[in-house]
């Protein structure tokens, strides 16, 4: 009986891990194979070459879309952290009229599915003259009730007495926020920062609605377009995909703890 369960466990584990890893391994190995070998079913490339990467860089202007993606993801992350932390701090520690109602209203916006607002958002961005611009991608992605909620929870964990002590010492609200609350909240900044960056790096639907010219493509659109184009060789598509995947994978490898923490926080909310 014991041996049986152990066998099931080993086989199950191998199946789970290989199903989840195989496509990723294939992605990397395919990008290293020369074009003729792309359908060679051996996973380990028989001939390793970086020519696909060279070709992607030379013919596709991939650096521009990588730069666009970085710009969008970093800008959204920075602005979102700033806005959410300020709002979270206000809801946690400040008194102002309609506070409770306003907070409930903020939470209720979490219920809105993106597919409902994408058409009106497009017209709002058009009114602002931001169609086909990176800022048009960035701005609507910043406000997010969920981040406000998590920051509020975090700031409520910091003792009220600290707030009052600083107030008695004559600190302004902004200084308390900046000098007392922020230094105590570095982990949540990293956790949410990583999560915002990855979400926006990987985002596709909204950028494709906003952008029209290939100069403004983020890297996800570039890859989607490659897929649609007939006769694009597979080794090029795979190489471009590897380039697109590397930033989020590096983040995951180095900031794994924060990465997983962010997911657990999502679960605890329930």
């Amino acid at each position: 009986m014991k041996i049986l369960t152990r066998c099931i466990k080993i086989i199950g584990g191998l199946v789970f891990c290989s199903v989840s890893l195989f496509p990723i391994i294939l992605l990397f190995s395919g990008s290293l194979k020369p074009a003729e070998d792309i359908y060679d079913y051996r996973i380990i490339p028989q001939r390793v070459t970086l020519s696909s990467f060279v070709e992607v860089i030379n013919t596709l202007d991939i650096f521009r879309s990588i730069f666009n993606s970085f710009f969008v993801a970093i800008m959204v992350t920075v602005l979102a952290l700033l806005l959410h932390s300020m709002a979270g701090f206000s809801f946690a520690r400040l008194q102002f009229p309609f506070k409770k109602g306003l907070f409930l209203w903020v939470l209720s916006t979490m219920m809105v599915p993106f597919s409902v607002i994408m058409i009106p958002l497009f017209f709002i961005i058009k009114q602002m003259g931001l169609v086909d611009s990176l800022w048009g991608i960035i701005l609507p992605m910043v406000p997010h009730a969920y981040g406000v909620f998590l920051f509020r929870q975090n700031f409520r964990g910091i003792p009220q007495s600290l707030f009052e002590a600083a107030r008695i010492d004559g600190c302004s609200i902004f200084r308390i926020f900046y000098n007392v609350f922020l230094p105590l909240s570095v982990p949540i900044f990293i956790t949410l920062g990583v999560s915002f960056f990855v979400t926006n790096w990987n985002n596709y639907l909204w950028p494709t609605i906003v952008t029209q010219t290939s100069e403004k493509y983020v890297v996800q659109i570039t890859i989607a377009t490659l897929n649609g184009a007939l006769r694009t060789p597979w080794n090029l598509i795979l190489a471009a995909s590897v380039i697109a995947v590397i930033p989020t994978m590096i983040l995951f490898i180095f900031l794994q703890r924060y990465y997983l923490q962010g997911i657990k926080m999502a679960g605890i909310k329930s």
Binding site: G13, F16, C17, S20, L21, P23, I24, L26, L27, G30, Y39, V198, W201, N202, Y204, Q220, I223, A224, N227, W234, I237, L238, S241, A244, V245, T248, M249, L251, F252, Q256, L260
Partner: peptide, 28 residues
């Protein structure tokens, strides 16, 4: 095991779809 099972989630939907098209390809 945790990392292996989690890893796909770091990939964008677009790239994931791309690799799976490659896997699903009808001819080869």
């Amino acid at each position: 095991a945790r990392i292996a099972i989690y890893l796909p989630n770091t990939i964008s939907t677009i790239v994931a779809a791309t690799v799976w098209i490659f896997l699903f390809e009808a001819r080869n």
